[in-house]
């Protein structure tokens, strides 16, 4: 997007991208009149319908941003400056000069790794505790009020405590991810388990499934749509929390990269990092959504 901006000629660029995308796909496909070709045309149209409008809005946004920030003395750099400043970071994300002087890939990788570990633990613990609360009235009475209080504690408030407990940044960050994302997983799983129709329980009773089989064959599939709602909220929250946590714990990671860039007044780098954080957050959310869709294809439609 910011490539042509370098040439300082944004205005005409908007129209061509949109129209070429739409017309090019149609023109190449029409010669073949087979139904397959028609299907491709249809697919290309559907893609265009989804992709073109956000691209236009994005281009407009860039244009306004450029116009607002290009005058000298503006606090924030225009997109053209951002691109020029961060060229190296964009085109060489894999460099490693030791310490925290690494390419963006390594920072993102470190953050994603923390999220992966913390979130994986949260998923396992969350589903297990959620099942317990959903299944046992006494566990719900005992645990639910406590969870309702604990879940309102902001993620970062846990960080000092976990630093005191673990005496190290890495496990503390992972703990913050865990404690942030576990609540929606617990609560949604519990609701899902509680909403399992009595019919399914009767079927399990007649077939005489043992508790383990009941858990694997009835509970998890029946509650899967709810569980995945919780997992999806959880992944979003953990990605929110990691940036803040890393700003405080330091080291390699996209959060500290942003904080470091601010301390060195590299505003362009902050903007680039935010762009990546947004894209990755979006991809993570979609990823869980797609997995959920595949796993619950039987239950969700019922």
């Amino acid at each position: 997007m910011s490539m042509p901006a370098l040439i300082n000629d944004n205005a005409p660029k908007v129209v061509p991208t949109a129209s070429t995308a739409a017309t090019a796909s149609v023109v190449t496909m029409t010669p073949k009149q087979s139904p397959k070709a028609e299907r491709y045309v249809k697919m290309a149209r559907e893609v265009a319908v989804r992709v073109v409008p956000p691209l236009i809005v994005l281009a407009l946004f860039m244009l306004i941003w450029e116009l607002l920030c290009r005058r000298s003395g503006s606090a924030l750099p225009p997109p053209s400056r951002v691109f020029a400043d961060t060229r190296e970071l964009i085109f060489d994300p894999f460099f490693d000069h030791g310490g925290i002087d690494k390419g963006l890939f390594w920072h993102l990788e470190a953050s994603l790794r923390r999220v992966a570990i913390g979130y994986a633990i949260a998923a396992v613990v969350g589903v297990a505790l959620g099942t317990l609360i959903g299944q046992s009235v006494w566990a719900m009475r005992g645990l639910d009020p406590i969870f309702q209080v604990l879940r309102t504690i902001p993620p970062l408030a846990w960080l000092p405590l976990s630093l005191a407990a673990f005496r190290d940044g890495q496990p503390s960050a992972i703990f913050v991810i865990f404690i942030t994302s576990v609540w929606p997983i617990i609560i949604n799983t519990a609701v899902g388990i509680r909403n399992i129709p009595q019919d399914y329980r009767n079927v399990a009773a007649v077939v005489q499934l043992n508790p383990l089989e009941f858990f694997a064959k009835i509970m998890i599939p029946a509650a899967a749509p709810y569980i995945f709602t919780g997992l999806r909220i959880g992944i979003g929250l953990s990605w929110l929390a990691i940036v803040a946590a890393e700003m405080l714990i330091g080291g390699v990671g996209i959060g500290f990269f942003i904080w470091d860039a601010w301390n060195s007044s590299h505003i362009s780098e902050i903007i680039l990092a935010l762009f990546y954080v947004g894209i990755i957050g979006f991809v993570l959310d979609r990823l869980i959504a797609v997995v959920g869709k595949v796993v619950t294809r039987g239950t969700a439609t019922n």
Binding site: D199, N202, A205, V206, Q208, K217, P221, T296
Partner: peptide
């Protein structure tokens, strides 16, 4: 006095498990 396969029930609303195929529903029992 407890449920068991020796007294199999055909439920009014079929109660098939929606995430299993027809074959798997029968195979479960």
């Amino acid at each position: 006095n407890s449920p068991g396969p020796d007294r199999a029930v055909v439920f009014q609303n079929h109660s098939l498990l929606p995430w299993l195929t027809v074959y798997e529903n029968v195979r479960l029992g």
